[in-house]
Write a protein that binds this DNA or RNA. Sequence first.
DNA 1: GTTTCTCCCGAAACCGGTTTCGGCAAGGAT
DNA 2: ATCCTTGCCGAAACCGGTTTCGGGAGAAAC
Lengths: 378, 378
Amino acid sequence: MANAYPDNPPPKGLRRPRVTIADVAEALGLTKGTVSRALNDYPDISESTRRRVARQAERMGYRPLSHAQAIRTGRTRSLGLVLQTNVHDAQRPFLAEFLAGVTQAAGIHDWSLTVASAQSQAEMLATLERLAREHKADGFILPRTMTDDCRIRLLRELNVPFVLFGRTGDATGCAWFDILGEAAMRDAVLRLAAFGHRRIAFVNGGAGFNYAVLREQGYLEGLERAGLAHDPALMRADAVTPPDGRSATAALLALPEPPTAIVFAVDMAALGAYPAAAALGLSIGRELSVIGYDGVPEGAYATPPLTTFDVDSRRAGERLAHLLIARIRGADPKTLRELEKARLLARASDGPPAVTSEDLARIVRARRGHDNTNGRKP
Amino acid sequence: MANAYPDNPPPKGLRRPRVTIADVAEALGLTKGTVSRALNDYPDISESTRRRVARQAERMGYRPLSHAQAIRTGRTRSLGLVLQTNVHDAQRPFLAEFLAGVTQAAGIHDWSLTVASAQSQAEMLATLERLAREHKADGFILPRTMTDDCRIRLLRELNVPFVLFGRTGDATGCAWFDILGEAAMRDAVLRLAAFGHRRIAFVNGGAGFNYAVLREQGYLEGLERAGLAHDPALMRADAVTPPDGRSATAALLALPEPPTAIVFAVDMAALGAYPAAAALGLSIGRELSVIGYDGVPEGAYATPPLTTFDVDSRRAGERLAHLLIARIRGADPKTLRELEKARLLARASDGPPAVTSEDLARIVRARRGHDNTNGRKP
DNA sequence: GTTTCTCCCGAAACCGGTTTCGGCAAGGAT
DNA sequence: ATCCTTGCCGAAACCGGTTTCGGGAGAAAC
C-alpha cells in the first residue's frame, strides 16, 4: 500500500527540509508555544526573550508556513481578486500594471494574491463565497464597482473584508481607493473652454458603473463653472470601445449644432473619434478637439497623440493591497478611504477650435455621403 | 490577555461554521481516517463504504480545506505564476485572457492560482523559490520563455514542477504548450509570395526569447519554399512596440531595394508600420503590405485593419493549467507537450503589390525630407 | 478444527503551527 | 513571616486534515 496514493510519489521537496518553529524552539531551549507567542508579540513574553527569539528565527531563516497557521487562525495571509471575464471591453490594458502593484505591495507584507475568474454574475458570487469559505483568501479587492454592486452585498452579509477600486452607492462598511474621475472631467471641460470652445460634448463610459455617474457630474460641474449652457443632446453614454466611440462621435457631429470638442470618459472610446473624424475629413486637434481618460498606451501612438488623464494603475494596486491588509487586520473601513487625482497628459488632440460649430455643421453636411467608407479595401 | 493578539478580533466567519471531515465521519459512524482514505481512493477501503462516504460528503457539502491538507501532504492545490513587471512591452494585452483561461481551468479541478510579481531577474528567482518553499504554489507556469531560461534551471534544481508557455533550448524535463509561430511566419511569407511579392522583409521580436528564434526559422523556410532569395538586409530584430516597428519600417524602406511587404513577428511592432508608411505617403495594403502576429485588438481598429495571426490566449491558459496539474500529479513531462497553430485573420493590410521594389525606392527617395513630421502639431 | 491469508476498518500519531491553562519564582504589601 | 500579585514560561490541547500501524472477522488452505 504505502503512500503511493492518490496520485504519485510525493514531492521530493527542496534540498534542505525547511526550518520549523520546533527547530527554533529547540535551538533556544524553549517550547514551540513560547516561540510562537514571542513572534506574535504576545504580552506575556519578556522583552529579552522576544528579542532572543526574533534573532534566532532570523538567523535560522525561519518563515512560518501560512497554511499551517491558517489551520488554527483561519487566516491565510492572502488577498483575493476575482476577474469578470465575460466583459471584453475595458480593464484589459490596466490589468498587468494593476496586478504588479497589488502583488508587489502584498509581497512586502509577506502576503500573496489568489486570482480567480467568473464568466457571469452568478458565478462571480459563487466564486467569492467559495474562496472565502475555503479560506483561499482572507479578503477581496473588488475592481470596477457598480453603483449598486451585488458583490458588496454578498461580502457584507458574509462578513468578509473587502476594499473597492472605485466608489459605490451605499458606502456603509466600505473601504476604497479611487481616482477622482469627476475632477478630471471637470478640468477637461475647463481646459477646452479656456481654448475657446463653446459646444463641448460628453461621451460617458459603461452604464451601471459608479464611475460613470461621477464623471457625468464632473462634466456638468465643468460646464457650470465655465458658464456654458448644458445641452442634453451633447451627451452620449455607454461607450467603452473604439467602435462605440466612433459611432457616438459620428452622431454628435451630425447634430444641427455639432460640438467642436468632445470629452470622453474612456480612452478606448476616444480612440474611436479618430476614424470618425477622418471619415469626414476633419483633423483632430483642429476642427475637432478630443480629450480622453485612462491613459492607455495606444493614446500615445495615435495621430495626433491623445490628450488624456493618466491613471496610475500600479499605484492603485499598491494602495488597495495596503488598505485591504489593514482592513483584514481590523481597521475601521471609514479610515481606509483614499482618493487621488488623475494626471493630465496634455498632448495634441485638443487645442483652440479652428472652426465654429456653425462652420463645422456646414462642413459635415457637405462631406457626408461622399465618402463613408472606413478605409477598408473594397 | 485572551485572543486579542496579534491584530484584532478574529474573523467572525461565515454563518454556519463549515462541515469538517469529523462531521462526515460522525454522521456515518466511521472515523476521520477512514473517511479520508475513502475520499482519497485508498485501496484498503471497500467499494460500498467508499460510495457511502462519497454520498454523505456530497450531501453535507463537505469540501476539504486545502491548507489543512497541505500541512501533511505539502500540496496546496494551487498553481503559481510570477509576472515580470520591469518589461513594459508585450504580454500586456494578453494577460487578462490568459488569466481567465488559467483560473477557469484550475477552478474546475478545485485548484486555485497564486500570482506574484518580480521587477528583476534576481527577484524573479527569489520569488519563485520563496513561493515554492512556502508551498504557496505546487508548481509554476512560466510564460515568455527564453532560449536559455534561468527560471527553468532554478526549478529543475529545486525539483519543482513547471510548464512552459513557449519552448526553450534545453527541453529535458520540460512540459509545454506553444503556438507554432514558425508555421505562421512561413505561411505569411507564402501568402505574400502568392500575391506576387518578391522582396519580403522580416522584423523579429524580442531578442533572447525562444519564439524569436523559431519565427525567424519560419520566415526563412517560407522564403525557401517560395523560391525567393534570402537577403540579410531585409531582416530586423528586437521590435516589440509601435515605435520600434516604425523605425524598423523606415529603415527597410530606405534600402536601395526596399521590400514591398513586411512580416512582423509581433503585432505591436506591425502597428508601427502605419505611421512609417503614412510619413512617406504610402498606403498600407497597396504600396506596402504588412502581416503581423498575435491578434491584438488594436489591429482590428487600425486603418486598414491589420492582417495577422490570432493567438488564443485564453485557450493557452486553459491548456497550461491542465498540463501543470497533470505534471504536479506526476505525469511524465514528455507526454505533456502540446503545439497548436495560430489562426490567420486575413484583413486588409496586405494584398498584391501596387508597385515594384524599384518604383518604391524612387517614391521613397522623392518623398523623404519633404515631410518628416509625424503628425504632431508644431 | 486449526492455521494462514485477505479484506477492512479503528486507533493513534503526525504535520506545523496557535492558544489555553496552570504553575513557579520574584517582588510588594500587610 | 505570610499572603497576594505579577511576570513569565512550560505543558498540553487544538485546528483539520493524512498516514501508519495493528488487529478483528471471515474466507481459504491444510
